[in-house]
Amino acid sequence: MVEESSRVLVVLPYILPGATLQTIIRRTIPFLREWQSQLDVVVVPEFKTSFQLDSALGKMYSIIRDVLLGYDMINTGINIIFNNKHFLKSNLQWKMGLLPQRSTFETWQLELDAKQCRTIEHYAVHGDSAEEIVGPKDADKFPVTALGGTFDHIHDGHKILLSVSTFITSQRLICGITCDELLQNKKYKELIEPYETRCSHVSQFIELLKPNLLVELVPLKDVCGPTGKVPEIECLVVSRETIGGAETVNKTRIGKGMNPLTVHVVNVLGGREEDGWSEKLSSTEIRRLYQASHSSN
């Protein structure tokens, strides 16, 4: 089960415009700071397409993170929950819940035990309209999907990659996580989390999104990992900056007589392709900030 910790809950009736979302998140700052909480944001309407989900998550994580960074809250965890109305029926506890004005949890068809939330506050939505994004419906499209990464200090970019992967997967998600031996040349390697810790954080986040999904976490020791060995895999999810690795995977599979994989590309959070994604959100940058923070203290 997901680890118990102090948490703050925000329920959104739809994808709100940026300025409105900023205002709502700012109301949670005193609670997040006082309790050193995680922030759980539940989006009520169901997403139909991965394109819509990828776009919405990119905007929401960026807006929320910018607000938090404005208060020097780099360590605050953000979890955007979607397509999971039973999420609130988990064993999680929230010290505070923020809901739309004149609403209850039942209004949004969310199953919540009243004892799970210590206090409830409301916010006003002034005629904002939901954002409409079209694309092919591909929820649960692939029975078996794979992805891979280091997942050190799991951050918002990782969570978008994992979110889209769970969205398009109906049965089994295979996640390769780079083993410690391959990380010796990484910058600030002394701050890299152990393999077991990284696995635990990935597992906990996926459980928030899709608890019934069969998840296999395997050590990644080469470029292909399980995608070069498991014929049942149908789709590989990659970020836009790692498409080259997907090409290598498919060449390997074809060489072994396996079917090539459908490659599903997720947008990179921050940065631009023209400058090599130099400003993207990365675990290396997070480790650098941690080191700078510890040095100044």
Rank of each mutant, 00 (worst) to 15 (best):
E207G: 13
V67F: 05
V42R: 01
L191I: 05
S282D: 05
R7Y: 04
P211H: 12
E121R: 03
P100E: 13
N75P: 14
E241D: 12
S55D: 11
E111H: 15
V202A: 02
I78W: 02
E132K: 07
K210W: 01
Y290M: 05
I168P: 07
T169C: 04
E279L: 07
V164P: 00
V144Q: 03
R287N: 08
R272M: 12
L88G: 15
C117H: 12
N185C: 10
A19Q: 05
G97F: 06
Y195F: 08
D275C: 08
L236W: 00
V11I: 02
Y61L: 05
L39C: 10
R102W: 13
A114D: 12
S239T: 00
L209K: 02
P100L: 12
Q171H: 07
L220C: 05
D222N: 14
T150P: 01
Y61I: 02
Y14K: 00
S62Q: 12
V218M: 10
S50A: 04
A292T: 11
G255R: 03
H294Q: 14
H122V: 03
I233L: 01
N75H: 11
L289Y: 07
W108V: 07
K256W: 01
P260Y: 13
V266I: 03
R26F: 11
K186R: 02
I243A: 04
L21T: 07
F31K: 05
T227S: 03
S50P: 11
R118N: 15
M60H: 15
T28P: 01
M60W: 11
K251G: 07
N84E: 05
L162T: 00
L281D: 01
S239G: 01
L69Y: 12
K141W: 09
Q38V: 06
R118G: 14
T107E: 15
K221F: 10
E181S: 14
K95Q: 14
S296N: 03
I81P: 06
I192W: 00
S283P: 11
L161C: 00
Q204I: 08
E111V: 12
L217N: 00
N267P: 04
W35Q: 06
P30L: 09
G244R: 13
F51E: 15
Q93E: 15
S293L: 12
T166W: 08
G149Q: 00
Y61S: 07
D113Y: 14
P194S: 04
D72G: 04
